[in-house]
Simulated assay, not measured.
Amino acid sequence: MKHSQDYPLNARPMIGLEDEYPAGFVDPWHCHERAQFLYASAGVMSVVTPQTSFVIPPQRAVWLPANTMHEVSCRGAVSLRTLYIDPVHDNAPDSCRVLEVSDFLKALVLEVVKFPAAYDLDGREGRIAWLLLDEIRRMPGAPYHVPMPSDPRLVHACRAIIADPADRRDIDAWSVLVGMSRRTFTRTFKQELGMGFALWRQQVRLMQAVSLLASGRSITSVALDVGYESPSAFTAMFHRAFGEPPSAYVSR
Results as ranks from 00 to 15, higher is better:
Lys2Tyr: 12
His3Cys: 00
Asp6Ala: 15
Ala11Cys: 07
Pro13Ala: 04
Pro13Glu: 09
Met14His: 03
Tyr21Gln: 12
Ala23Gln: 09
Gly24Val: 01
Gly24Trp: 03
Phe25Asp: 05
Trp29Gly: 12
His30Asn: 04
Glu33Met: 11
Phe37Tyr: 15
Ala42Thr: 09
Met45Leu: 15
Val48Tyr: 05
Thr49Arg: 05
Thr49Trp: 06
Pro50Asp: 09
Ser53Phe: 13
Phe54Met: 11
Ile56Val: 15
Pro58Asn: 01
Arg60His: 15
Leu64His: 10
Asn67Pro: 04
Glu71Ala: 14
Val72Phe: 09
Val72Ser: 10
Arg75Val: 04
Val78Thr: 12
Thr82Arg: 12
Thr82His: 00
Leu83Glu: 02
Leu83Tyr: 08
Tyr84Gln: 05
Asp86Gln: 11
Asp86Pro: 12
Val88Glu: 14
Asn91Asp: 13
Leu99Arg: 09
Leu99Met: 12
Ser102Leu: 09
Phe104Gly: 02
Lys106Val: 00
Ala117Val: 13
Ala118Tyr: 11
Asp120Cys: 06
Arg124Ala: 11
Leu131His: 09
Leu131Gln: 12
Leu132Trp: 07
Pro140Asp: 13
Pro143His: 06
His145Phe: 06
His145Ala: 15
Met148Arg: 14
Ser150Asn: 10
Arg153Phe: 02
His156Ser: 13
Ile162Ala: 05
Ala166Thr: 08
Trp174Asp: 03
Ser175Gln: 02
Ser175Arg: 04
Ser175Ile: 01
Leu177Ala: 15
Ser181His: 07
Arg182Cys: 02
Arg187Trp: 03
Thr188Leu: 06
Glu192Val: 03
Phe197Met: 03
Gln203Trp: 12
Arg205Asn: 02
Arg205Ile: 03
Leu206Ile: 09
Ser215Tyr: 02
Val222Asp: 07
Ala223Phe: 04
Ala223Tyr: 05
Val226Trp: 01
Gly227Glu: 08
Tyr228Arg: 10
Glu229Pro: 01
Ser232Arg: 15
Ser232His: 12
Met237Lys: 14
Met237Asn: 13
His239Cys: 07
Ala241Pro: 07
Phe242Cys: 00
Gly243Asp: 08
Pro245Gly: 13
Pro245Ile: 08
Ala248Trp: 01
Val250His: 05
Ser251Arg: 15
Arg252Trp: 11
